[in-house]
Design a protein around this nucleic acid. Sequence first.
DNA 1: CGCAGTATTGAAATTTCTCAAGCCGAGTGG
DNA 2: CCACTCGGCTTGAGAAATTTCAATACTGCG
Lengths: 247, 247
Amino acid sequence: MPDAPRYAVRANVIELLTNRASAHFNLDASDKAAIQTIRSRTKALAEGDEIVRQGDKPDVAVLVLGGMLARYHTLPSGDRQYLSFHIAGDLPDIQSVFLRVMDHSVCAMDHADVATVPHDQLQRLFRQRPNVAFAFWRLTLVDAAIFRQAITNNAARSQVPRLAHFFCEQYLRAREAKLVQRSSCMLPLSQRQLGQTLGMSLVSVNRALQQLRSANLLEFRSGALDIRDWRGLCELADFDATYLHVA
Amino acid sequence: MPDAPRYAVRANVIELLTNRASAHFNLDASDKAAIQTIRSRTKALAEGDEIVRQGDKPDVAVLVLGGMLARYHTLPSGDRQYLSFHIAGDLPDIQSVFLRVMDHSVCAMDHADVATVPHDQLQRLFRQRPNVAFAFWRLTLVDAAIFRQAITNNAARSQVPRLAHFFCEQYLRAREAKLVQRSSCMLPLSQRQLGQTLGMSLVSVNRALQQLRSANLLEFRSGALDIRDWRGLCELADFDATYLHVA
DNA sequence: CGCAGTATTGAAATTTCTCAAGCCGAGTGG
DNA sequence: CCACTCGGCTTGAGAAATTTCAATACTGCG
């Protein structure tokens, strides 16, 4: 028997999809009804499980129900570059509906539950319901805006602000998904993985973390991020949430 | 009277749009006919002209007819981080159809000609012709894939391969747009701007360039890139074109 | 209890940046 | 036509940031 459920799984699929889509485009009743026709399969993942790999040609897309997934490039050295992290309600590989070959991989950072939705169902839905298509299109556009910000973060900010900016983003996205409890959210990354996200060495991550801690801006340990001084953190990070295009 | 045209301008709009869209999704005759109803305004830009700025809420999108545009973030220091460069056929800010506020700016790197297309026309077109919507959606997804690659390039590759990778990408995209002539393409960036793209100092760019030159891989000067050894360059850069999702 | 993976620390090695000066080529005005 | 200027390119060298190496804790789990 699989692990005990860490959160309600089944039946969430439609609700998550509908909520997420509604947040991005005005949907009417028929749009929502159309989303209800989607049929998916849920699946439990263990830490490190790869759900799709660079080079694959999947015929389903993944919806995160709980836990955290990551997208990453695999370098010839075998090293990873993490690109983004995904929480409940995200569709980390929805681009695969239109881009046949995966240019990156997707894995679970921790236990996670996902639903897989066949591409053809999604494409049919998008074809019949332009509003729904626009909603998910917008989702992928916000995704791209986040990637742009990551370019700037990795290329133009020095290490401490860079790390701070990353935390701001994760925290705000978690809050948006109602996954923040008392100023803290799940963030199951090791310092090494943080380094593979931000282009920093493990040692540098460690030292940057200490600075953030000792400035009393946040705590980060055992897979959770706890914000102590949001204002201060944003200021240090030069964080402006516009690019997340919330609301 | 404006500058003499450096390439055919008018009338290209529909052709460029149709070609670009067809490259991304199978269009039938009615789809193409619908694209023909698009009405646009053409505009000549001088080097440095900003066409939209971070924070703007534009109601038109831009199609590049000739020359080169760039997208960039402006940092609080006033410094720029370039995000991507765009050539004939590209729609650098099509995301603005669905994301109201610009999270970055767009400027001309050189003389450029563009057409502006009202958002509402595009949205109407997408609503009536799902295939066309899918084509342009896919375009934005390739864009995102390019951003992902830039994250990896800036964060995980050392300076010489990083610069090499950037050149590979620009060259291949130019070739795709039929803008390569005898192994060379336009690339009107100064070394400083190259640095603001790749997160390198001007001096580092200069030294990395010298290495690429002396290894006989390429020439780069006065706004043009000339490839001498494509194989060698790709190898050095660890360049794999999959992410451009050509064809 | 002990292993394995992760975190922490110090110090040397390396990369990269900054500063500063000289060069070169295109455009300008005398 | 030439001196002048300006921006971009090139070069050297010291300063700073960052990585690597290596050794030592710490922690959760079997």
